[in-house]
Design a protein around this nucleic acid. Sequence first.
DNA 1: ATGAGTGTATTATGTCACTGATGCACCTAG
DNA 2: CTAGGTGCATCAGTGACATAATACACTCAT
Lengths: 115, 115
Amino acid sequence: MSQSRPVYLKLRDQIAAAIIEGKYPEGEMLPSVRALAAEQGANPLTVAKAYQQFQNDGLVEVQRGVGMYVVAGAAGRLCSSEREQFLREEWPEIRNRMERLGIDLAELAGTLEAN
Amino acid sequence: MSQSRPVYLKLRDQIAAAIIEGKYPEGEMLPSVRALAAEQGANPLTVAKAYQQFQNDGLVEVQRGVGMYVVAGAAGRLCSSEREQFLREEWPEIRNRMERLGIDLAELAGTLEAN
DNA sequence: ATGAGTGTATTATGTCACTGATGCACCTAG
DNA sequence: CTAGGTGCATCAGTGACATAATACACTCAT
């Protein structure tokens, strides 16, 4: 009940953000499943499950016995696909909910600057 | 994978939207657990679990042997609480994600009209 | 009183996602 | 070849979720 969202999905989002922001540069090796697991206090298998999402999409390249590397263009492709998914699937629901709750876009505009 | 969100939470959201939109007017009786279960193809106990969220918050009044009634001011209170929750918990994450993906508020403004 | 309609409590069962521990296959450095 | 690092496959445990079958307490129209 405490953690509504699965850990491996949280890790996936976190890694995706890191790739897009260039924290894990293209061509570089990702942290090993054991290393990231120790850092995040999770199980290596849980980290591996998060990594698998990316190798299924061809965003990371696996070299068995060596490590997983970010392929060239991964950040761009990842950003594009997530952007499209957001606009197509998530935003409509958010928009409906805002409409129902009487929240205006202008009301949210100010928060964009308040970083 | 098909049902990422529990059924009783989906029902809860659906009922909350119906109350806010006035589909279930204040003072009126909610559909019985058996009736809504039959309509939604769910188990009566699952519907009861969804209803219980509302009686815990004092938004519906239970008359044993009769039914559950929407209390006066339920729509307003529900709208306020959900609005506050949205602004406090959900919007910051959405904002961060939009920033990372390079999505501008102006880009979304047009979709508000396209109902 | 009776019966049909409410919500609710109890117990049991099956499914599935999540997580974890262990061991294996692979590569590289020495 | 050996040692230590990879990723990965297998098996199992845990808990939430949904469903089910009853049974009960209550109210209201009849």
